[in-house]
């Protein structure tokens, strides 16, 4: 047994788990955060993607014990109260989900992709970068559209934030 202690969605959590417990099972079964899904369970489909120390990783391929001491963000940790995260909002706006099973992983992977491309994204890059996430409804077209829309929205709000802070400085 291992005592694991991590920060999940801003909350410090700990628990005593079997050493073989996967991070995804710790999140779902010990913390009740069932937004993170187990799809293929073979590190291929990406339904289990969460952020560990700011990086989008497959939580079905990592032990909870390996993640101990880390900061984890799951799909439940993205929204700001009732306000959806821009990527969540874009997925809703663009009808980027059909059955919704892959959506948590798609969104967590997409946030990571947008963070790594502060200068914006094009369709080819989004498609290539999403290679580790599989949609069994094959609804990729609207997913890609949503990621592009979210990327634009996030860059715009960042630019606004910048000019606002510049204006403040000037004032």
């Amino acid at each position: 047994m291992s005592e694991v202690s991590l920060v999940v969605n801003g909350r410090r959590v700990s628990g005593v788990v079997e050493d073989r417990t996967l991070l995804v099972h710790f999140l779902r079964e010990h913390l009740g955060l069932t937004g993170t899904h187990v799809g293929c369970d073979t590190s291929q489909c990406g339904a289990c993607v969460v952020h560990v120390d700011g990086k989008a990783v497959k939580s079905c391929t990592m032990l909870a014990a390996q993640a101990s001491g880390s900061t984890v963000v799951t799909i439940e940790g993205l929204a700001d109260g009732a306000d959806l995260h821009p990527v969540q909002a874009a997925f809703r706006e663009n009808h980027a989900l059909q059955c919704g099973f892959c959506t948590p992983g798609m969104i967590m992977a997409s946030v990571d992709i947008i963070n790594r491309h502060p200068d914006g994204l094009d369709e080819a890059t989004v498609r290539e970068e999403l290679e580790g996430n599989i949609c069994r409804c094959t609804g990729y077209h609207n997913i890609v559209k949503a990621v592009l829309a979210a990327s634009k929205a996030m860059n715009k709000s960042k630019a606004k934030g910048k000019s606002a802070s510049r204006a403040k400085q000037a004032a």
Binding site: S43, V49, K55, A56, K58, A109, I113, G132
Partner: peptide, 9 residues
């Protein structure tokens, strides 16, 4: 190698 989530680890 693999996909980006795999490359991170």
């Amino acid at each position: 190698i693999g996909d980006v989530a795999v490359r991170y680890r």
